[in-house]
Structures are given as structure tokens and as C-alpha cells.
Design a binder for these strands. Structure first.
Lengths: 257, 257
DNA sequence: CATAAAACCTAACGTAACGAGAGATGCAAG
DNA sequence: CTTGCATCTCTCGTTACGTTAGGTTTTATG
């Protein structure tokens, strides 16, 4: 029970700040072996081991509250707890990986032209963020296999396609107001449809299905909360018109207004 | 500039809590388009876009403070900032991966026997945590190539070796007090040395070097802060004695005390 | 032994991004 | 006119300490 170390010495020995040691004393997770009448703290070798335990568990991501529980209960189910913690950490890892992917996409589209329209940037990020929700939603309408195929594209290709799409969004925004039937506009739309086809393949029926889904009045509310558009409502109406014309010419749309 | 949405409506539309919206108003990152005399907040479509921008940037890991800066400066270098953020996130990812590895090791050694000695557990975690520091330290003494080779072991094998080592630590702790020269003790030490050899190869010179390094008085301080031992000082003295006897018999140590 | 310097003490505020509650007010419908 | 819902403004709580500020105790030195 030798209380050998003053707080300063203990602090150096353990690479823990004095403040931290006092805090641990305060919350009762590590009380020094001995306190003098004047209030000075002295720590023992036993405290050293206790602190190491705390540090280890902290490293594994536990909160001080949990650790306090662990230390005071002596029959804690370590294995189960570790296994739970592992799952939590895997979750966190997945999240970070998604964020990194979003950053990669954002950086990639800025490679040459440092400037991107703000709303395009936003929709890029928001859509990457919602990707898994998109998949789920689509699977409610389309065969699971087809949906998986749509998303099973090598990362590099995705970066490229996304970049092309962004350029087209930008072009469309610049062309807003022009006649939707003009060659200029129709050319850009054609470029867009080429990208769509690279993603979903040459399956024209699928193109049509997707198109219908986006326009069904009941799903409108869903789609607009789920898929973020880079366009303003006015722009979007105009783009839809241009797309309509394009698809009609291609014979994908036959009926209806 | 139509201020169309009450805070409740805006909250639902954006899946943001009312509290958050009020907070954003308070810190000035998103002030509603219009506030009535009685203090009610009304948001516009423009605010919608602003909020989406905030949400996007938050998703990328930026703090509200940074975001506020971004929004108020209109010439922020987005690209550089994103690139910096990416690095930060990669760091975080690396950290989490290390934690997961530590959890894996901890779980693996508990696969059969749910119980592990507390100090062994601690040293396992602390040593995994310090792994990169260990490598650096070793490279100050041993050829870089050799050090890299020591650590370049498939994860599965590492789990196995670690588990074996833990069992041996446990055995040694149980045998503490017995004659270090006894067959029983020497057998366990032999098992330990087999593990060591699996890691560093059949290079007896290297074994000797490592052994010397651990015992050189000047490096003692370093080693004890860097490598965490699962043994108490008394236990460790005893283990060292047993190891000494073993290595002397094997002819690895010749001279000295 | 006196004094200065070093080490230590408590107390209290600050952090980030809200969540949760208390208690007061506004506003539209019956 | 009252009921009831929406909204308002405080204010405290959260995590794990960092950071002063201002006072006391120990230790080193002349």
C-alpha cells in the first residue's frame, strides 16, 4: 500500500495530465491511495494498474461511465461487452468510409475546374449520403438483382460517371430558358441519357419504368425527399420537358400527354 | 422571398428538429427569412437551400463553426478544404481500425476460456495500441527490413500467436514461485521461445540482440514505458531468471553475470 | 530561519451541438 | 370565450477534460 507518487510524478509516469487525475478522483473512478491532511494526493503502484485498466478500456472506446461500472461490478460479462463494442466500432467505420467516398467524389469533380455550382455540390453530397436508402426504395419497385447491378459499378467508373453527370447538370443550368426542342438542349440531354444507360444497361423497359416512377403522383413526395435534385423547381420543370421530348423521339414514351 | 413555412412545417420538411432550427438561428448560421412581432420564425425556400448546404457540410464532418465561416466567406477554397478534411477522415479511419483490431484480439483470446487475467488483458490492449511506436523504437536498433518482416504476419496468424502467448503468460503467473530451473517452468519458457521464433525467424543472433536490448540499463526506462508487461515487478524478475536459465542452456547467452 | 520557487490545492467557467423540460404566450376553431 | 395546439424564451444537462484565477504547502536555497 505504499503511496509513492505525488500527483506530478504519477502524471509523468503515466503520461496522464494532472487535471485528468484530479478529474478521475472527482468522479470516483480512480481515487489516490492516500491523501494528506492538506489535501495532497499520493498514488500507489496499485493505482498505476487501475489507471492502466482505465486507459485500456478508454482506448477501446468505452465512456468513463461504462468503465466505472465495469470496475465496480466484478462480474461484468467482458466478452459480450467487447463483442457489442466491436459492432459499434464497425458501424462507425462504415460511416467514415461513406464520408470519405463522398469527399472523394467531391474532390474528383473539382479536379480540373475548381468551381462547381453550389446546388450541384449539395445534391452530390446528399445523394451519396442517402445511397443506401435509394437502394432500398428502388427495390420496392424493381427486381433486387437489377438494383444491385445498377450499384455494382467499380468505384473509379462511378467517379467518372458522376463527374460527367455534374458537367451535364451544369450545362443544363446554363441552357435554362432555351427552347427545350433546340438541338443544343437535346444534345445535352442525349449525353445525359448515355450516362443513364451506362448505369442501368441497354434495358429500355427499365428506363421507362424508372421514368414513370419519377412521375407518378403518389411517389412524388417520396422521391423529392429521397433524391435530391440539383435544380430549382423551375429548372426542373424545364428539364423534364426537354427529357420528355427526347424520350418521345426515341420512342421510349408513346402514350399520354 | 416568400416566408412560407412555420418552424414546425420547416422542421418536418427538412427532417430537422425544431430545437436544431432554433439553435441555428441563435448561433446565426441560419436565420429565418421572417420573424413576426411575437417572435415566430418563418422560413423561405431560400432557407431550405441554405439548410441543405449546412447539412451536407455537416455530413462531411465539418463543425458548425467551420460551416459558418464557409457560408460567410464567399471565396473559400473549397478544394483545399475538402482535401484537408479527407486526410482527417483517413486518420480517424485508421484509428478505428486499430481499435477494432484490438477488440478482435481481445475477443479471440476469450474464445474458449471466457476468463482472462486482468493484467494480461490490459497489456494486450496497451501493446496493440502502441504497436507503431514499438516499430519505430525497434528500427532504432535493428535493420528496418527485419523489423518490417517481424510485423508482416497475416492477421490470422497474429491472432493465434497472441492467443498462445496469453496462455503462456497465464501459465507463468500460475507457476510463479516455483524453482525457475524446474522442468515444468522450463517447458513453458520453451513454449514461449517457440512463439518468439515464429515471429522473428530462426535468427539466433537477433534473439540475442533483442534480449540484450531489453536488459541494457539505459534503455530500461524506455522499454518499460513503451512495452507493457503483464507481470508484476516480482513476477517479472522471476520470469527473467527462468528465461536466463533457458537461454544459457541453449547457448544463446554465454558471458555475463 | 527566512524567503523564494515549485508543486499543489479548490472552484468555476468553457467546450459542441443540441435534448429535454418548465412556464409563458399566440393563434385558429368551435 | 375557451380550448388546445403551436410556438416562444429561458435554463440545465450532456463528455472528458483544458484553462485560468487565486490561494496554500512543500521544498530548496541563502
Amino acid at each position: 500500500m505504499a503511496a509513492n507518487y505525488s500527483i506530478g510524478q504519477f502524471s509523468k509516469k503515466t503520461s496522464t495530465t494532472i487535471r485528468t487525475l484530479r478529474y478521475y478522483d472527482e468522479i470516483g473512478i480512480l481515487k489516490p491511495a492516500f491523501i494528506t491532511e492538506s489535501g495532497r494526493r499520493y498514488y500507489s503502484d496499485n493505482d498505476l494498474i487501475k489507471l492502466q485498466k482505465i486507459v485500456s478500456l478508454k482506448y477501446l472506446g468505452y465512456s468513463l461511465e461504462k468503465i466505472t461500472e465495469f470496475i465496480h461490478m466484478n462480474d461484468w460479462n467482458l466478452k459480450e461487452s467487447l463483442s457489442f463494442q466491436r459492432k459499434e466500432m464497425l458501424q462507425k467505420k462504415l460511416h467514415i468510409e461513406k464520408v470519405i467516398r463522398a469527399l472523394d467524389h467531391a474532390l474528383h469533380i473539382m479536379d480540373d475546374d475548381g468551381e462547381v455550382d453550389s446546388s450541384i455540390f449539395i445534391s452530390l453530397i446528399l445523394n451519396i449520403q442517402m445511397e443506401s436508402e435509394h437502394k432500398k426504395w428502388l427495390k420496392g419497385f424493381i427486381e433486387e438483382k437489377k438494383v444491385d447491378a445498377m450499384y455494382d459499378i467499380p468505384e473509379e467508373k462511378q467517379l467518372e460517371l458522376n463527374k460527367k453527370a455534374i458537367t451535364i447538370y451544369s450545362d443544363l443550368k446554363n441552357l435554362y430558358g432555351h427552347d427545350p426542342e433546340s438541338n443544343q438542349v437535346q444534345e445535352v440531354i442525349k449525353g445525359y441519357m448515355e450516362i443513364v444507360q451506362e448505369i442501368i444497361g441497354d434495358d429500355f423497359k427499365l428506363v421507362q419504368e424508372l421514368y414513370d416512377m419519377g412521375n407518378e403522383s403518389e411517389s412524388q413526395i417520396d422521391t423529392h425527399n429521397l433524391f435530391h435534385s440539383p435544380f430549382t423547381p423551375e429548372e426542373e420543370e424545364w428539364v423534364t420537358k426537354a427529357m420528355d421530348i427526347y424520350l418521345r423521339k426515341k420512342g421510349v414514351i408513346v402514350d399520354g400527354k
